[in-house]
Design a protein around this nucleic acid. Structure first.
Lengths: 240, 240
DNA sequence: AGGCGCTTGTGAAGGCGTGCACAAATCGCG
DNA sequence: CGCGATTTGTGCACGCCTTCACAAGCGCCT
């Protein structure tokens, strides 16, 4: 029976798994929560709580059996079942994703590549022929598709998502910079390089302002939102 | 003055910004929290609370001025300052990232490309010559590097990170599947395709087991009739 | 066999984030 | 000028996640 895992825990399990694989290759048979936590870049208490949600697979005074834990996590994540992945959109990014080695190493199999551009359809990319998006239903009929990866421009992403959903896909990984609307029961995860860069930018901006900000923080006025303060000068006055 | 924003809010601001740019192009001059929230794929209350952290830039009964809000968010994120980005590792993924249009569109400028492979160094990729990683300090001396993007295999990533830090980089975006250790004050964000796939895999595994479980759970006292209903998953999963 | 050191698993507390629901504020219209 | 429609900004409650601290359990050594 599958335990009900907190979402935050689920997001960390793959990281633990990768660390465990490394440890196994290095010859470790057991590992303490402290070691594994360090290898995975988290707090040891958090790691223990995460693993405790899977059940008691550790031995007090000793640690966790590496091989056993690998099996458990892989089972919980459903990685022992092979899942078919299709990739839609073979521009720069899609091309790179098609050649990504990380697919096969975790039980994922690229079943097909799709695009709509006649220049790209028919090309052979990393051993697979790019097919036209119209053929997606055919491919899905032959072999159920578990996960669809969208690497198209933003304006085509929603219609691709609709096609994927219609083909029975219940998990979508979206690299297009847009919001997808999908029916309930379909899981969408988004990866956006630009967003990550902007978050980094924010932290740098904050750090660089932190020094001078301390001198300005003594704002006496404004009790409760007396809206006389207008925004434009705020933006410009601060930007030094 | 830069307000102290909750991390969750910061992570959503770029999404709001993108939605606002779309609205501006579509000719909207003002937008209500409801509209903007829908466009950004979030709850309207959450959006209002997020924006309230920046200050009061809306007008009750009317909504938000699109142009003003764009300026505010860009200011807070530090996007009006152009930041130099260097990209290390030009394999499949790095090659695609070098051609990513999203860099320039948000004020980021690719300052240089680096690799260590003699086959790759010297190549011209999307208008830039790939330089040897050894030259990184030289480039950093000419023009301060804000952000370093690591797209190398895992085994080289830590040493690249060390080099970047030594060159004064304070923000790192890591595509390598490994944990980086960096000194305090340096911000690392990680993007891992394999992790995202595994999270999707988990949800599918859970769903497929829930179906079987639902058949077995003939709960006698079930008044509500709807057992474990996860229709909101899709909406929440949008925020990665 | 017994005690000691080590490590897991977990109860409890605190912090953070989310969403509801409503008061405050603004605009347009009669 | 006043009123109603509309929308923002926010107090509050709730739930999730993190972290601490420690009891419970296991193996080893004497």
């Amino acid at each position: 029976m599958l335990p009900d895992l907190p979402e935050a825990t689920v997001a960390r399990l793959p990281e633990y798994l990768r660390a465990l694989h490394n440890l196994a290759e290095a010859g470790h048979e057991t590992v303490s929560s402290e070691e594994l936590a360090t290898a995975a870049g988290v707090n040891s208490a958090k790691l223990r709580k995460d693993l405790s949600h899977l059940g008691s697979y550790g031995t007090r005074g000793v640690g966790y059996d590496v091989a056993l834990l690998v099996d458990q996590i892989e089972y919980v994540l459903g990685l022992n079942q092979r899942r078919s992945v299709v990739l839609v959109g073979l521009g720069n990014l899609g091309h790179a994703l098609a050649g990504y080695a990380g697919f096969a190493s975790r039980g994922f199999r690229i079943a097909a590549l799709f695009d709509v551009d006649d220049e790209i359809v028919g090309q052979r990319i990393h051993g697979l022929i790019v097919r036209h998006l119209d053929e997606l239903p055919l491919v899905a009929a032959e072999d159920p598709i578990a996960i669809g990866v969208i690497a198209t421009p933003a304006d085509g992403a929603q219609s691709v998502a609709d096609l994927l959903v219609a083909a029975g896909v219940t998990g979508i990984l979206n690299f297009a910079p847009c919001v997808l609307s999908v029916p309930g029961g379909v899981d969408v995860r988004k990866v956006d390089l630009a967003i990550e860069l902007q978050i980094l930018s924010f932290h740098q901006h904050r750090k660089s302002n932190a020094a001078g900000a301390a001198a300005l923080t003594a704002l006496p006025g404004g009790l409760t939102g007396t809206g006389t303060h207008h925004s434009t000068d705020a933006a410009e006055a601060v930007g030094s």
